[in-house]
Design a protein around this nucleic acid. Structure first.
Length: 572
RNA sequence: GAUUCCGUAGCUCAGCAGGUAGAGCAUAUGCCUUUUAAGCAUAGGGUCCUGGGUUCGAGCCCCAGCGGGAUCACCA
């Protein structure tokens, strides 16, 4: 039970009055819709004979009432349109209640209504629906943030990130551009799915709850299954399951997977995020680079009609082919240092020089990765493939066909961030076991993100997995770039946040139990008493005085209890 | 986790030497037959995030906490 503010109380009163007039503020039956605001705006100016019998619904976002005529703006999924309501038209007879009372007094910004009428253009030149009849479809009891906007100017924008993310519904109502971001996100996934289906790959689903977590270097969330009496982990990746399916004989499988990583949060990291992983048999990482280019280029073109997009102050062009450069060459290009022949010791020295915090848990691969992150990654704005990673940091990738100490792996970097990660998958079960064992050793050295050994996965490989190319592509990050959003929270509907703190509040019944007459409960709340304990701490005389003051202030028409009665409440 | 900034009306934000808490929009009431963020007039609306402290007196100063943003660290 939360205290209501003045405007919320007014709306509840309106609700009661509507019911008294026989109007159901939440009617059950459907309201037929035969067009959208967007369709009207698109087509009406071309052909004024259209839309002479529309039925449309939406949320009231703006009202301008002038005597016997009113202008209202309603908003549906596609946009807004002005609606003109004239008293004598919606109330043709003597009884003007529907207009004077129901529409003017009892309806508010935020209510959802359905209207029927015809489209015309006002003297001011605005496409408007002339209403023949209207119907309340849902009464709104809370006040919307009132954002005013005209063309590009916005007044009183609703921008507080906390409120926007916690109450995303509000954000979507008042910030139409937010809706577009999520529509684009859906189109990215749609476009990617179409592309993969077009190639004949099978969309599959694999477990989110896993007894062993694997396929990536990250700390997991841990949970527990009662019946099995065992620990389960929320997946950090689905890689090992998809490869089992390749062993099983599917030649191309993919999954849009929610993954969960128990790591820090910032504008690039949410504890749960979406990744598309793809595995294709009889291919290698060179082939996969071609596929990624082709796929992303298609997605961008589907979305923007061009391969170029704006991201922050940069323009990024996804047109094929993208630059391909090996990790060592990239580091050499940006630092002039050649790490390819250096020992772990020397590399650690270089790492310190470029500003990496080196500690004993870091192996050679990790050091190189850190140097790369420090010196190269942020400088890669145009899509670039970085290839051929050190074997130590890629325990699931196949050894390079010709370069000692490296694996056949690539990442695509764009706008200074990794957008995908792929390799020629390791299918040698003996080598895979050795790599896992090295990971276990790293874990003992203190690396909390090292991988664990998955015996069943090894058993699968021992039956034989075809040479396979694998890919993981981050949907959230890709969406951020393609929609030009600076934070991952802007491309996830409900980003993870701390729970909203709820003040301890006693119920009405608790107060009545205490002895407060029901009519006085709102007064007690108004006086700032949240719990019965708060009341116990107060001097009865002071409470009595406050009640009198508030009774006057709140203009309440209820009898004042005597001071003895008030004291009596505390006698128990 | 570290550093730093922020938290005032339904919304956006002011506020000062530490002295009765302000504006715009929204809301209510009255008037007005077509307005383009705002028709005119009047009115109501506040636990100034929470809890302590300093003070005659705290929205403001001090301490602690809660929530959020930004940057950094880890990770995608």
């Amino acid at each position: 039970m939360v205290e209501l503010n003045e405007q919320e109380l007014q709306r509840r009163q309106s609700l009661d009055e509507l019911k008294k007039l026989g109007i159901d503020p939440y009617p059950a039956e459907l309201f037929e819709i035969n067009t959208t605001t967007k369709e009207i705006h698109d087509k009406f100016p071309e052909d004024n004979n259209l839309f002479q019998d529309v039925s449309i619904a939406g949320r009231i976002m703006q009202r301008r009432i002038m005597g016997a005529a009113s202008f209202t703006e309603i908003q549906d999924e596609t946009g807004r349109i002005q609606v003109y309501i004239k008293r004598d038209e919606v109330c043709p007879g003597e009884d003007k209640t529907l207009y004077n009372t129901v529409f003017k007094k009892l309806m508010d910004i935020g209510d959802i209504i359905g209207v029927k009428g015809y489209v015309f253009i006002t003297q001011m030149g605005e496409v408007t629906i002339h209403v023949r009849e209207f119907k309340l479809l849902s009464k709104s009891l809370k006040v919307l943030p009132n954002v005013k906007e005209k063309e590009d100017k916005v007044w009183d924008a609703f921008t507080d990130p906390e409120q926007r993310y916690r109450q995303r519904y509000l954000d979507l109502i008042v910030n139409p551009k937010v809706k577009q971001v999520f529509q684009k996100r859906a189109s990215v996934m749609q476009s990617m799915r179409d592309f993969l289906n077009g190639k004949g790959y099978l969309e599959v689903e694999t477990p989110v709850l896993q007894p062993l977590y694997g396929g990536a270097a990250a700390r997991p969330f841990k949970t527990y299954h009662n019946t099995l009496d065992m620990t389960l982990y929320l997946r950090i990746a689905n890689e090992l399951y998809l490869k089992r399916l390749i062993v099983g004989g599917f030649d191309g499988v993919f999954e849009f997977a929610k993954d969960f990583r128990n790591e820090g949060m910032d504008r690039f990291h949410n504890p749960e995020f979406t990744q598309m992983e793809l595995y294709v048999a009889y291919k290698d990482y060179n082939w996969m680079m071609d596929l990624v280019e082709e796929m992303v280029e298609k997605i961008v073109t589907d979305m923007h009609g061009s391969t170029k997009i704006k991201s922050g102050e940069h323009e990024i062009d996804f047109k094929r082919p993208w630059k391909r450069i090996s990790m060592y060459d990239a580091i050499k290009e940006f630092t002039t240092i050649d790490l390819s022949e250096m020992s772990e010791e020397d590399i650690a020295k270089v790492a310190k020089e470029v500003g990496v915090d080196v500690d004993s848990s870091m192996g050679k691969g990790k050091l190189i990765d850190e140097i790369f992150g420090e010196t190269v990654e942020a400088n890669l704005i145009q899509p670039t493939f970085i290839t051929d990673y050190p074997v130590e940091m890629s325990p699931l990738a196949k050894k390079h066909r010709s370069k000692e100490g490296l694996v056949e792996r690539f990442e695509a970097i764009c706008n200074g961030k990794e957008i995908c990660n792929a390799f020629s998958e390791l299918n040698d079960p003996i080598d895979q076991r050795k790599r896992f064992e090295e990971q276990v050793a790293l874990g003992k050295r203190g690396d909390q993100e090292s991988m664990v050994l998955d015996e069943d996965f090894l058993r699968a490989l021992e039956f034989g997995m075809p040479p396979t190319a694998g890919l993981g592509i981050g949907i959230d990050r890709l969406t951020m770039i393609l929609t030009n959003q600076p934070s991952i929270q802007d491309v996830i509907f409900f980003p993870q946040m701390r729970p909203e703190k709820k003040a301890e509040v006693a119920t009405d019944a608790d107060f009545i139990e205490f002895g407060i007459p029901e009519a006085w409960v709102p007064v007690i709340r108004k006086a700032g008493f949240k719990t019965v304990e708060d009341l116990n701490d107060v001097n009865p005389n002071k409470l009595f005085n406050e009640m009198g003051g508030l009774r006057k202030k709140m203009k309440l028409d209820i009898a004042m209890p005597t001071i003895e009665e008030v004291r009596g409440w505390f006698g128990k």
